[in-house]
Simulated scan of single mutants.
Amino acid sequence: MKKLIAGNWKMNGSLVANELLVSELLAGIKLAGGAPACDVAVCVPTPYLAQLTGLINRPFLSQKDDIAGKNTARSAIELGAQDISAQASGAYTGEVSGGMLKDFGVRYAIVGHSERRAYHGESSQTVALKTKAALAAGITPIVCVGETLAEREAGQTEAVVKRQLAAVIHDNGHCISEIVVAYEPVWAIGTGKTATPEQAQQVHAVLRAQLNAASSAAKQRVRILYGGSMNAQNAKELLAQPDIDGGLIGGASLKAADFLKIIAAAGE
């Protein structure tokens, strides 16, 4: 299966900075051949979804690709959101539904990021419900799991990630084959630290076995990304591991040159 490199911009960006970054990414992709060997996505703050819809599709618009006024050409970059409501609609001030995201052509939505779990009190059950909402809207959820430093030092890594993923499997049944999983050791996010390729592979293998046991289709379909400070320097070694199917990239996704190097590494 193709690897997936997804940038998580977190709460960063501006109209001017976004246009420059996306222009540099598209130019770099075009220079490298125009069609990356891996899938590429950027998960952006909700206020910028409309802008990004225009930016990532602009170079691909042409009269022959336009059907009834709606462009159908696929961009080299897919659009992603950083969260999704578990609710379809209603009196949920501040929430954004899957249907709303779909209106902007969103392909992926991050659910259960460690920052959402830590700062917004999201439980594994909440993450499972958001996963279900994304799937119902035709959006691929990127389900994040990962342990804290204290949990790793206590030898609880495997138990923690399996418990987090089990909640999603339990609530989504056979649809589990349609998700993406991202292993993000909390202690390696934004700290400059990263798991060694061997440490990352060990956890990815555990998650792979859990998914395979839950769904026969998951073996061929579910990609497991590494999300702990992957950067231009360590990407190649991490992506060479047998159960690492891509990366959920934080800070490096805000630097076009670095993000392009990671994309290139995923295609090797």
Rank of each mutant, 00 (worst) to 15 (best):
V111D: 07
N57Y: 00
E24S: 09
M100F: 10
L25R: 00
E122P: 11
P47Q: 13
D65C: 13
M100K: 02
Y48W: 08
I77F: 02
I77T: 04
Q51K: 12
G80D: 00
S23C: 02
Y92L: 06
R117C: 05
L31A: 12
D83C: 10
I110E: 05
M100I: 11
A86H: 12
E24I: 00
K102F: 06
I110Q: 08
Q51W: 05
V44M: 10
L61K: 11
F104P: 04
A50E: 12
L26Y: 03
P45N: 09
Y92A: 08
D83S: 14
A118T: 07
G112W: 09
K102T: 01
I84S: 07
N18K: 08
G94I: 02
F104Y: 14
G54H: 07
K30M: 03
L79H: 08
P36K: 02
S85H: 04
L26V: 01
L26I: 04
T53M: 11
R74A: 15
S23I: 01
D83P: 09
A41H: 00
A35R: 15
M100N: 03
Q51I: 06
L61A: 09
E24D: 09
R58G: 04
A76G: 01
C38G: 00
G54F: 04
E115I: 13
L31C: 03
L79P: 07
L25Y: 09
Y92N: 11
L21R: 11
G121D: 15
L101T: 00
R116Q: 13
A35L: 10
E24A: 11
P47E: 08
D39Y: 02
G33N: 03
A73R: 10
N57D: 01
R74S: 12
L79A: 06
G69F: 14
C43Q: 09
S75T: 04
G121F: 14
P59M: 02
I29Y: 00
G80F: 14
D39A: 12
S97P: 03
I29D: 04
G94L: 05
S85T: 08
S85P: 11
C38L: 02
N18M: 10
K70Q: 13
S75L: 04
A86L: 12
G33M: 05
G33F: 05
P47M: 11
L20N: 08
A27S: 05
V42G: 10
S75D: 02
K70R: 14
S85D: 07
Y119G: 05
V106P: 03
M100P: 04
E122A: 10
F104A: 03
T93M: 00
A118D: 12
Y48L: 15
V96T: 13
P59V: 01
S85C: 07
G34I: 02
G54K: 06
N71M: 11
I110D: 07
V42N: 10
Q82K: 09
V22F: 15
D83E: 08
A118L: 11
V111A: 14
A37W: 02
A76E: 05
A81T: 11
H120Q: 12
R117H: 07
